[in-house]
Design a protein around this nucleic acid. Structure first.
Lengths: 303, 303
DNA sequence: GTTACACGATAGCATATGGCGATTGCAATC
DNA sequence: GATTGCAATCGCCATATGCTATCGTGTAAC
């Protein structure tokens, strides 16, 4: 049984005339005759009663033809659905971002992607780099936004932006009076840090190797998010280091906390988008990159 | 797009593994690979994302596969429906009978066909021979029960039974006292007849050629059915001639009307079943004939 | 680091299928 | 009796579909 054969019987049932039905199917009359006989043989049912003057659908044939019509309708829907799926940017895209990027990037992203891909809803998630990597690999996510370094086989990595680190200081802290803060100065302070697993923690430690020992000694609490760190700084518990995008707008004014750049070489992190090589919707990724790089994130330098 | 291809993608979506999917489809792995690529090309959509380690269904693919599954289900139903339609005696059969046969045959027929073809409902109709002929020809009826003579191309005629004519007389009529009635005697009586178009009318006139003139002169009313004739006889309006099967059981006892056979050669009619040659369900016709010839109709001689 | 393996893609070839035009056979009609 | 119209049949061809063998690559094992 083939879709073509089903198309033939449906048409013949309508036309009740082999030659006309054949024409409507764009085949010759013998082709139609043979195909219909073949189907009748396969199903072992006489679908059409051939008379000299007239072709008539048998009672069993009526039901078969009706069902054949259904099959063809559903088959048409396959094409239609394929057509819809073809655009690449009209189906949901599943995106993950690390905890220290998502909250600050997503609002801009959502706004910017609307005009580029209005039909592409974003399914968003925040997680650790390792979890995101896993979910990207096994297909639970289509793209992840992480911070370099990031190594993974079979992926495309597109750099999005660099963002500098800055120091967040309680307004009444002595360091708040300085224009810039040196790494040396930080080593004597209580530096509040994210917990292990956050890549930003590692990046901060990398940028300021001296702060770890001190912080460990005082056994400061580990922040679970950049915002909790900010709250703790505001409460006077210590100093922290944040990526600039996180200080875009927040609830504390400069009487409570102040941001200060690093003296000397500014530490920064590079944020990149990772997708599987051979992912079926490169255009969706492209649209995503375009949307992100057109975001004006506080302090970030688009690439 | 073919049903085979749809079967392939559904299986591959389940197995997520070309070789295993190919096995389950009873084809080689290259066959599956090529077929799926072909479908993807035709639909212009990537349905599967091939990775070294893993085959994954794309988002567009998910919807396509789901729809493909529907198509296959409907296609399965075609086979199932065909299977059901194959028995020939498990679908309604549309039967017509002439007015003078239907009322007396149908009750027996219904009873007798039950054990032979319990799954075959009968759609019944009574009409004139000419109308039945037309409906058989254009497929509105599958079989008709008429009385010979009957000529028609492209049909099979199977004789069912012969039934004698008898004379129906009011019990208080002088003729009621006789054992038999001669044609001569009838010529002097008021003979009640069916209206034109009923073949039984013609058969009666054929059997007793002398009665017409007399009846016309007295301009008796024409009966619309054998039963109305019987009622009129019971009311004393005249005498009539009936086929024996019609006197099986009726509401009048022998104090009101009596049946008398013809003297000499008994006139009779032959009742036959007509179906189209090449009708798709010969078994249904066969069952029908068997059911009818096993009826014990009053006075009839099965053939 | 090398070998072995597993997987899907590709190539080359055989065969089945589906298609065609031409023809036949049969009724109906003129 | 000739013609017409119809579906069935025949013989032929192009293509589609399937196979085996092989390749390229990434992964696992030793």
């Amino acid at each position: 049984m083939t879709l073509t054969e089903l198309r033939y019987i449906v048409t013949l049932a309508q036309e009740r005339h082999f030659r006309r039905a054949a024409e409507r199917c764009f085949v010759s009359q013998p082709t139609l005759s043979v195909a219909i006989k073949k189907l009748e043989d396969e199903l072992d049912v006489t679908i059409f009663e051939r008379n000299r003057s007239d072709v008539r659908v048998t009672m069993a044939g009526e039901r078969i033809v009706a069902q054949a019509r259904k099959v063809l309708e559903e088959a048409e829907l396959v094409k239609q659905i394929a057509q819809e799926g073809k655009g690449q940017i009209n189906l949901p895209l599943r995106i993950g971002a690390i905890f220290t990027v998502g909250p600050y990037l997503f609002p801009h992203l959502i706004r910017n992607i609307k005009p580029i891909a209005p039909e592409m809803p974003l399914i968003l998630e925040e997680n650790y780099t390792g979890v995101l990597r896993q979910k990207l690999r096994n297909g639970e996510l289509d793209a992840i936004i992480i911070s370099l370094p990031f190594e993974e086989p079979d992926v495309d990595i597109q750099d999005l932006y660099d963002e500098p680190f800055e120091v967040l200081i309680p307004a009444d802290h002595p360091l708040a009076k300085q224009e810039k803060v040196t790494r040396k100065q930080l080593e004597k302070e209580n530096i509040l840090m994210l917990g292990e697993g956050h890549c930003f923690r590692d990046q901060v430690l990398n940028a300021c190797p001296g702060i770890l020992k001190h912080s460990d000694e005082t056994s400061l609490p580990q922040g679970t998010s950049l915002e909790t760190l900010r709250h703790m700084v505001a409460s006077g518990l210590g100093i922290t280091i944040l990526p600039s995008s996180s200080s875009d707008k927040h609830i504390y004014d400069s009487d409570t906390i102040v941001e200060r750049p690093f003296a000397g070489k500014t530490p920064y992190r590079r944020v990149s988008l990772v997708s599987r090589k051979r992912f079926s919707r490169p255009k969706a990724i492209e649209a995503l990159v375009q949307a992100i790089t057109s975001c004006s994130l506080q302090g970030a330098a688009n690439l």
